[in-house]
């Protein structure tokens, strides 16, 4: 039960049939329109009519969604439903995959994300990303966090850089654990610490939005709890979109939850509403564990 897998050729793995077979509901129910409240007034990110193709295969089908300022939106759904693909559209990480094509309007603060003149470099500095598997660079802890500020030239002096590193590590709740060994390799930390290091690395460039792609799937429960706590703290300053396959996690950290199914956005609502009173039968089937 992982996120949608992409092989080297950029093909999507088809939705796992065995997971669907168990279902007692008709999972082929045609999704024509998203139920719930996909839009909000003070939107940081606006997405309208998004379609994503890998070569011939369509991975995302006409998805429209807003993500509001300083809010945490969780995206849930069965494996291969396209939630990770959708997330990677937001900072254009899909550009790196050969044969991937994105259609539709995405705006960040009303500026288009996919435009002929848009430079992905500053875009990705504004929209940071944390990945499923902790991926610290094989460098020291300090260098890991300082990497972003260095390449972007954010710090003008060494002292400033030190400060950025310290602040980022503090915000990621890692400072006290690593302050005495900043020069040791980041790969030597535990899994949970590595993931927090990656979060620190992402916030070191002062992003406005942070995308998290199943950030806790490789971690143990204690490390997961620590990260969830962190996400809640980060909400003050950042807009966060998180993909997760854990419904409990979605319930704990998010204000709104979006349920994806086979490339369609089925339902978006306040997290509480989704989990207590789902409006679509597919959502209900999923959260009650009838498939997934």
């Amino acid at each position: 039960m992982n996120t949608m897998t992409l092989d080297a050729a950029g093909q999507t793995a088809p939705a796992q049939p065995e997971s669907v077979e168990k279902a007692t509901v008709d999972t082929d129910t045609r999704v024509t329109e998203t139920v719930g409240q996909p839009f909000c007034d003070d939107a940081k990110l606006r997405m309208r009519g998004i379609n994503v193709f890998y070569g011939e295969t369509q991975a995302i089908n006409d998805v429209s969604l807003d993500i509001g300022r300083n809010e945490v939106v969780a995206m849930i759904g069965p494996s291969g439903c396209g939630k990770s693909t959708f997330l990677r559209c937001i900072n254009r990480m899909n550009d790196t995959i050969e044969g991937c094509r994105v259609e539709g309007d995405l705006t960040l603060d009303d500026e288009p994300i996919y435009g002929p003149r848009v430079d992905v470099v500053p875009l990705r500095a504004r929209v940071g990303m944390v990945f499923q598997k902790p991926n610290p660079f094989p460098k020291s802890i300090y260098e890991n966090v300082a990497y972003g500020p260095k390449i972007h030239g954010i710090a003008s002096r060494r002292a400033e850089l030190d400060e950025i590193v310290e602040n980022s590590l503090r915000r990621a709740g890692l400072w006290n654990e690593v302050k005495d060994r900043l020069d040791q390799p980041g790969t030597g930390l535990s899994g949970g610490q590595q993931q927090r290091l990656c979060i620190a690395r992402a916030i070191a460039v002062s992003p406005e939005v942070i995308l998290m792609d199943e950030p806790c799937s490789a971690l143990d429960p204690i490390a997961t709890a620590r990260i969830e706590e962190l996400i809640d703290e980060l909400r003050e300053n950042y807009t966060i979109a998180i993909v997760t396959h854990s419904m409990q996690q979605a319930a704990r950290v998010s204000q709104r939850t979006a349920y994806f199914h086979l490339g369609h956005l089925v339902e978006v609502n306040d997290t509480e509403t989704v989990f207590t009173n789902p409006q679509h039968e597919l959502t209900e089937a999923y959260i009650t564990g009838r498939f997934g």
């Binding site: 900072n91 990705r124 940071g128 990945f131 990497y147």
Partner: peptide, 8 residues
């Protein structure tokens, strides 16, 4: 991905 995601 990690490096590109930071805007390298």
């Amino acid at each position: 991905d990690g490096a590109l995601g930071l805007g390298s």
